[in-house]
């Protein structure tokens, strides 16, 4: 078991890593917590793969992302991100309010070590253009709508230059129309950039709309309960019948997971 993990984690002959993220036997307990938050999570995300993590409250979704982002370390098991860089996005855009939209993106470029003030400016403008916010460089975060702020946050995440994008319910606070548009935007960016995406949500339809794979986590402790491969071709729409059908099936399992806690 250990041996396979080690070989798989090592970059292959072409120099490219075979996995973007690899979790092996990951457990996480917090001091004073009776049950661990995460327990024995095994999960591989291939380069360029789009994986949705689905679960009810208490399944440790956010904890899991923090571990992958390197903001916290697991109690047991190993977390590997061979590229070493995973960008993290939250429900709130968490843009710095003392900087303009463009400066927020530039700061990420600067901290990543991109030299040259002018080069950074040009690159920041290119990234804002990529999320279709050309001309918003000088706007302050509070002057932008929630959807626009999330797109700036997306540009900032791209500026970090990693090959993994971690998203913690990034669209949960948006209205339905904006969310729908951002789904389309995210898929477009994922297809053009080739990033691996780990997308956490409690919205089954959203998971099926976006992911190539949907992983259902159980709650308290968080474990991988089941997973589905989503073979519906993109572009999908959230109201597609194929999306709805799979969502019904997954919802059944999610409800089962939840009702176990009521017994």
């Amino acid at each position: 078991m250990t041996a396979t993990i080690e070989t798989a984690a090592r970059p292959d002959r072409t120099g490219a890593a075979q996995t973007a993220v690899r979790l092996a036997g990951v457990g996480k307990s917090f001091r004073g917590g009776a049950t661990p938050v995460l327990d024995g999570i095994d999960l591989d995300v291939a380069p360029g793969e789009f994986v949705c993590l689905l679960g009810a409250s208490g399944c440790g979704k956010s904890t899991l992302l923090n571990l992958v982002a390197g903001l916290d370390s697991p109690t047991t098991g190993t977390v590997e991100v061979p590229s070493g860089r995973a960008a993290l996005m939250f429900q709130e855009s968490a843009l710095f309010p003392w900087l303009t939209a463009g400066q927020n993106v530039e700061l990420a470029l600067r901290l990543r070590g991109l030299p040259g003030r002018r080069e950074r400016r040009v690159e920041a403008e290119r990234l804002l253009d990529l999320v279709r916010l050309r001309g918003s460089y000088d706007k302050r975060p509070h002057q932008l709508s929630g959807g626009m702020r999330q797109r700036v946050a997306l540009a900032r995440a791209l500026a970090q230059g990693g090959d993994v994008l971690l998203m913690d319910e990034p669209f949960a606070a948006l209205d339905a129309i904006t969310r729908d548009v951002l789904h389309e935007e995210l898929v477009r960016l994922w297809e053009t950039t080739g990033l691996a995406v780990v997308f956490v949500t409690h919205n089954v339809r959203e998971a099926v709309r976006l992911g190539q794979r949907v992983v259902l986590l159980s709650s308290r402790p968080g474990r991988v309960a089941r997973e589905w491969r989503v073979d519906i071709p993109q572009p999908r729409r959230i109201e597609d019948k194929t999306v709805a059908d799979l969502s019904v099936e997954i919802t059944e399992h999610l409800r089962e997971e939840i009702s176990r806690h009521g017994r």
Binding site: G70, A87, L111
Partner: peptide
């Protein structure tokens, strides 16, 4: 605290 976490994630 969110700002500090974001800061750490983008490399500060």
């Amino acid at each position: 605290p969110l700002y500090l976490r974001v800061g750490r994630n983008i490399g500060a």
